[in-house]
Design a protein around this nucleic acid. Structure first.
Lengths: 337, 337
DNA sequence: AATGTAAAAGAAAACGATTACATAAGGGGT
DNA sequence: ACCCCTTATGTAATCGTTTTCTTTTACATT
């Protein structure tokens, strides 16, 4: 009753452990009769193979590490779910961890996952341990999501949303509505996503003749968190000449900004228009529904899974980059000037 | 460079593997000088212990299975996060899986987790494999969340929200506002949560002299999903004599119902008042903000972690039940009749 | 009849740790 | 001088699998 191993099955079936193993993995000559006996014994004893032992021997754990910046962000959950849906069919499990954008946490989790011998890593990098990640990337398959691995020498894939394009389109949308004084609520400029979204904003502004330099006055550099969004909106509110519009570079910050807006009774879009990058869960039910630029996290997750499985199967693949084009979903958070 | 094991470290440091192991686990006599050499060797070779091998030997994987009905439900994410925060300090990792309330999926995950040799199971049961779970519960520590394990013989803990009380208070709240025709949007009656919330509703109704029998006309039995919520609201809408209020038994269904309400232009609370069980993420930003009864998932998760760690450490504990009292958070989704 | 090959099964060596057991040196107590 | 205990280290067994060797048998080919 307690702890039945392959040995017990072998004894019970009157065969060697090798034979039992062969039946379990059915990948070698075993006569039908013996196989039947073994199957019988397995079900009688309720034997279930010890995956830990198997992992040790096979040097493969059939588990994948997923390291995202914020597990509270529904966007990542959707993505992880899509990944799981696919890889679980091949027997893989996910260990999902949240770095909270902390260098230390990320490193600690990376080390933990490595010692747990994960077969592959799916990483939304903080950008602060990228040298380490580069090292990893030549030991195990790595697929980066949304944020590029900074260091050269990285060996792996990237599944990204076209941040420049998305931010460009959001900005253009505001410009088309007549806005010229636009507040930009940036994400972390230390990660590619943050920089590129800002670049997309700059590009659109430049096209209407507005130079957005480093000391652009209508700007708040946040770190993609709810709190940063709240603070960013507060920074907007403190300005003497409040911009008529605001572009927020991710969903969490947008929620934070909306909370500020809500609690301070700011009328949208009369006093301020707001647009945002990335999907927000249940936005259809919000009283203020910002227009958003977004790529489908399920689709992205599907691609991540696909690349990962390929990379696990065949080594020596070149780096690949899959870039999704964000779509604009028009809301009610912006008005014509 | 590739794959450095304890043997390599031993050789490099000129000691036996046993000594290296002792240094790594520092739980046995090792002279300071030798220890220093070993530490040196470890860092030079960048040795990291293989947790798979350790698990096999120690018969402990330091990983916990978390099986919830719906990983898309922020409520469970918050809870899982709280659990992780605590158990990770003791070196435990979480494998989180989503059953989608499917018997088959739950069973498959249970078997997978067992063969992965998890040290403990945290389970939001579907109620359909409870005999199996009872069996498990006498092999590894099990902590149930929100839903009771049906079968007798279960050996483990339960962390729950007082469903009867929560539903009772929500109903009473509506009754106090003058409502008498109240539509009830039930969750799965096959799980304790669903049954108890319904019972709480019945109790409150009985107190004002209304018998809610099995063929109560204002009722829809859903299964805690978004889709069920949508359908439930549709069922309400189809009634000739629409009840003036609706009580929805979990957050996902409430979101579904709100979506129906939104897309069909039903005015809240003029045409219908709505109250709900469990927190909804970002409800502050909704245009309709139902009053909710909820227990704090972080607090509950903290308790779950605590019970689990205790159960891992000492065997032979009695079953424990921790019941959180839900609090009413008043919104704007209901009106006086 | 001799030989080659495929099918079937077992014995035993891994995988990378932990740990029970054995051994030895150094001191303190008598 | 003897014994015993503590400290320090090594040897080897073990955890539960998979898999490489073997060996044996049976059958087809010549």
């Amino acid at each position: 009753m307690e702890k039945v191993t392959i040995k017990d099955v072998a004894k019970h079936a009157g065969v060697s452990v090798a034979t039992v193993s062969r039946v379990v993995n059915n990948n070698y000559y075993v006569s039908p009769e013996v196989a039947r006996t073994v199957v019988q014994a397995i079900s009688e004893l309720k034997y279930v193979p010890n995956l830990v032992a198997r992992s040790l021997k096979k040097d493969a754990t059939f588990s994948l590490g997923v390291l995202v910046s914020d597990i509270t962000n529904n966007y990542f959950i959707e993505m992880a779910k899509a990944v799981e849906d696919i890889v679980s069919k091949q027997g893989y499990s996910l260990i999902v961890c949240s770095t909270e954008n902390s260098r230390k946490r990320e490193l600690a989790y990376l080390e933990l996952l490595i010692s747990r011998k994960i077969d592959g890593l799916i990483l939304n990098t903080t950008g602060e341990n990228d040298e380490y990640v580069v090292g990893l990337s030549r030991k195990i398959p790595v697929v980066a999501i949304n944020r590029k691995i900074k260091d050269t020498g990285f060996r792996g894939d990237l599944v990204d949303s076209n941040s420049i394009q998305g931010a460009y389109e959001l900005t253009t949308h505001l410009l088309d509505l007549g806005h010229r004084k636009i507040f930009v609520l940036n994400g972390s400029l230390s990660v590619s996503t943050g920089r590129e979204r800002f670049a997309g904003f700059q590009k659109a502004m430049r096209e209407v003749g507005i130079k957005v330099t480093d000391n652009y006055p209508y700007r708040y550099d946040g770190n993609f968190t709810l709190e940063a969004g709240y603070q960013g909106a507060a920074a907007w509110a403190r300005l003497a000449d409040r911009p008529t519009a605001m572009i927020v570079m991710n969903n969490m910050m947008t929620v934070g900004a909306l909370k500020y807006i809500q609690t301070h009774g700011i009328r949208v879009p009369e006093e301020m228009s707001i647009v945002s990058y990335e999907r927000i869960e249940n936005i259809e039910l919000f009283s203020v529904q910002p227009t958003i630029a977004a790529s489908d996290p399920s689709l992205m997750g599907g691609k991540v899974a696909e690349l990962m499985l390929e990379r696990i199967q065949s080594s020596g693949l070149n780096n690949r980059e899959i870039v999704f084009q964000p779509k604009l979903l028009i809301g009610n958070g912006e008005g014509r000037i």
